[in-house]
Write a protein that binds this DNA or RNA. Structure first.
Lengths: 165, 165
DNA sequence: TTGCTCACTTTCTTCAGCGAAGTTACGCTG
DNA sequence: CAGCGTAACTTCGCTGAAGAAAGTGAGCAA
């Protein structure tokens, strides 16, 4: 399901990556899934995306190996949701780099606030997206918490295969 | 000139970034401009993008402060091209992160080859996109060379405001 | 059996992408 | 000076994706 032209066989790795993640929805879906919010309705409500587009993106992302299906309990029922694969979770540095760029180069909206990315392993806020600026360790989703003051909430990220009911 | 919905006033910095760079062409244009290839015809030929779309993207990127106009000499004439601003050049970590992800998680095409990102300051290939894995310094475009074996060529990147004639 | 939730799928309109052709500016050639 | 070439766009026509909203089906619960 190509977004536009097929760039999957380009020699340049940037272009091959963009063939898969060169759509804003894909990165936002990965972000939410890494927050453990991988149910269809959670994604729809959290992102404000049309159901048709969400459905198509999820199918493409399963196909590309960014997501996998996981089961969760809804009362007595078992339903299907989505979780990140290793490849999907490995997009964390890209997401955090985007967050850092956004903090540096876009204007905070009315009532907005700085989002801190805390490395739970060492307890410090990191000012880098790839390795912790405090302890130098490579950053993994399951060791990160995103502090979102505008929601009055801190969200712990989850590793590959994880979905919070 | 919004791509779709306007995300410029979202509280989440990831979303605000994607409002600006959430289009594959935008990142590819930044990449080529950071290689000094910021002329309209160079971008068109190098990217294989339609002229209409390129024109619209360049206008949006000027507007967003990613690019600025610079003059260059074409024989006796002075023409206008594009160069990265400080904000545009600061997308380098995002681009390099995408390149690294592509190398790890997408298949090398027939006749393809690994692309090395060399930090000219210390002379080593870096395996990270944000700070040099060899010397630890933050990576700036003007200190990087991208080695592209499939072209038999190494391209030195350029800093903000620079355009190679 | 009716209703409810969740996960989709279908339909319809609008808008963006792509390819190709046209336009403008300006210097160069004959 | 008339015509030509090149770079940088703009316009046009077609097609396909986005988005909004309504419809479908599966499995419970009352």
């Amino acid at each position: 399901m190509p977004l536009r032209s097929d760039w999957s066989t380009e020699p340049c790795p940037v272009r091959r990556s963009l063939d898969v993640v060169g759509d804003p929805w894909v990165l936002l879906i990965v972000r939410d899934v890494l927050h453990g919010r991988g149910r269809f309705d959670q994604l729809r409500d959290g992102l404000g995306i049309s159901e048709a587009v969400l459905s198509r993106r999820l199918a493409a992302m399963l196909d590309a190996g960014l997501l996998e299906r996981v089961e969760y309990a809804d009362g007595a029922r078992t339903r299907q949701g989505y979780a990140a694969t290793e490849a999907g979770a490995d997009l964390l540095p890209v997401l955090q780099q985007l967050a850092l760029w956004g903090e540096r180069h876009t204007a905070l909206p009315e009532g907005g606030a700085h989002m801190a990315m805390v490395h739970d392993t060492c307890g410090a806020e990191t000012t880098r997206g790839e390795v912790c600026s405090a302890c130098g360790a490579p950053l993994r989703p399951e060791h990160m918490t995103w502090v979102k003051p505008w929601l009055g909430r801190s969200d712990r990220l989850v590793g590959p295969g994880t979905l919070l009911g």
